[in-house]
Design a protein around this nucleic acid. Structure first.
Length: 112
DNA sequence: ACCGTGACGAGAT
DNA sequence: CATCTCGCCACGG
């Protein structure tokens, strides 16, 4: 059995696991870091499967606006926000406060 | 095997 | 500045 196709899911999880506490990143940033031409969509899809993955803080991954687009996938509508606030991130109106300040760019932090 | 949908993003209007 | 459209690919029905 040859798995010639790249498993984007594992790659995404790997990056997400490196997100430090108190920081967030965006789907597009991860996609660009991994060189996924597929775009941010596949990253978001991967996060959907991340639900079954431990040590994958999907709450730290938001869209480019800092909006908690995936909050509905955490079981409860406020679960994602609570997890973020537990990390010390302020969330207001389903949006990350000071998003630019807490933004964690894998290309910049991990290096390209 | 075909069609529609989706945790997005960038560019165009 | 706000809104719309397209691209991109995997998965479910």
């Amino acid at each position: 059995m040859n798995n010639d196709k790249p498993n984007y899911f594992d790659l995404v999880y790997q990056v997400v696991r490196e997100i430090p506490k108190g920081r967030v990143t965006s789907y597009g940033a991860i996609a660009h870091y991994l060189g996924l031409k597929s775009g941010a969509r596949m990253v978001g899809y991967a996060m959907n499967a991340a639900h079954a993955m431990p040590d994958v803080p999907a709450q730290r991954v938001v869209n480019r606006q800092g909006l908690l687009t995936g909050k509905h996938h955490f079981g409860a509508p406020t679960r994602m926000q609570e997890l973020l606030e537990a990390d010390g991130i302020r969330v207001e109106n389903d949006q990350v406060v000071d998003f630019d300040r807490v933004f964690w760019d894998p290309e910049k932090e991990l290096g390209i």
